[in-house]
Simulated assay, not measured.
Amino acid sequence: MSSAIINGKEIGQEIRGAVATRVEALKSKGVTPGLAVILVGDNPASKTYVANKQKSCEQIGMFSELIKLPEDISEQALLEQISELNTRSDIHGILVQLPLPKHIDEDQVIQAISPEKDVDGFSPISVGKMMLGQDTYLPCTPYGVMKLLEHSGIEIAGKHAVIVGRSHIVGKPMGQLLLQKDATVTYTHSKTPNLPSFTKQADILIAAVGRPNFITKEHIKEGAVVIDVGINRNEQNKLVGDVNFTEVSELASHITPVPGGVGPMTITMLLENTVQAAEKELERQAK
């Protein structure tokens, strides 16, 4: 069998169309959704991500502001910058591009962002609300994966979802979101012995381990849905995922490609969260 390809580019465009309509509605009420992106230092990958985020904002009529700060900026100066953005009425979402230089405590920085503007969904308040199933901004990559599954008509309730990876940004929240949709969830990671014995049970397998072509056909049961969150460069400097696409696509019922799978969805959900933040701010003002 050959897999159905889950096209994140197409699904992302469809969602962005709906988000753009909401941007127009907000603008007609005098509000332009605004996203501030803070970039510390000159990490080439971070610069690329930030440029893509800005371009995407502009394409749907949002306002975006890039704040570039030197690599050696003090933690205090960065926190003061965030504090100022927290008070600005034209900024609805604040995003600090990770990773940060070693001398800066990422946790402190994330906690400094006002929960109302935490469009990355990383703050302890956002994470706590997500765990409790309360209304909050969901982390963009897991949120994007949920939208991919939903738009592809993939049943989640009652299915066994296995996650490979336990990062705060993808693995952990991914499991929670699947659990809320009534999946049975198993977490696995680099210290899990005999990994295939777990992954072969998966109806839905999420690979978020950050190792190129790590998941092979030995890890998959026939008919599984495979979502590849990995973005890696192989020896030829080619973009590849965590899943060996050629092998696994022979067994999976559905699979996401890299690039063009989960990647476009991450930025799409960032736009969604920022527009939602602007809508909520408008509601607060109306009260």
Rank of each mutant, 00 (worst) to 15 (best):
K238M: 13
K238L: 14
K238P: 01
K238D: 12
L239V: 13
L239K: 07
L239D: 01
L239P: 01
L239N: 01
V240K: 00
V240Y: 03
V240H: 03
V240T: 13
V240W: 06
V240E: 05
G241H: 10
G241P: 06
G241T: 04
G241C: 08
G241L: 04
D242M: 06
D242R: 11
D242H: 00
D242K: 09
V243I: 08
V243T: 08
V243Y: 03
V243K: 02
N244E: 15
N244D: 15
N244F: 08
F245G: 08
T246R: 09
T246V: 14
T246H: 14
T246A: 15
T246Q: 15
E247I: 02
E247G: 04
V248T: 06
V248C: 02
V248K: 05
S249N: 14
S249T: 10
E250W: 07
E250K: 15
E250S: 14
E250A: 15
E250G: 15
E250I: 03
E250V: 03
L251G: 05
L251T: 01
A252L: 03
A252F: 07
A252C: 08
A252T: 09
S253T: 13
S253R: 07
S253C: 11
S253Q: 04
S253A: 13
S253G: 10
S253V: 09
S253W: 09
H254P: 00
H254T: 05
H254N: 15
H254C: 15
H254S: 14
I255T: 00
I255W: 06
I255Y: 05
T256P: 09
T256I: 02
T256A: 13
T256R: 00
T256Q: 14
P257Q: 07
P257G: 10
P257A: 13
P257W: 07
P257F: 07
P257T: 07
V258Y: 09
V258N: 03
V258P: 03
P259R: 03
P259K: 02
P259D: 05
P259N: 06
P259M: 00
G260T: 12
G261K: 04
G261V: 12
G261L: 11
G261M: 11
G261Q: 11
G261F: 04
V262S: 11
V262E: 05
V262T: 06
V262I: 10
V262W: 12
V262K: 07
G263L: 04
G263T: 05
G263D: 08
G263V: 12
G263I: 04
G263F: 12
P264H: 11
P264T: 00
P264R: 00
M265D: 12
M265Y: 13
M265T: 07
M265H: 11
T266D: 12
I267N: 04
I267L: 04
I267Q: 00
I267A: 01
T268I: 03
T268E: 09
T268N: 07
T268S: 13
T268W: 06
T268L: 01
M269K: 01
M269S: 02
M269Q: 15
M269Y: 10
M269H: 02
L270W: 07
L270C: 04
L270Q: 08
L270N: 05
L271Y: 01
E272D: 12
E272Y: 15
E272W: 11
E272A: 01
E272M: 08
E272L: 14
E272G: 00
N273K: 10
N273E: 11
N273R: 10
N273W: 00
N273I: 02
N273D: 13
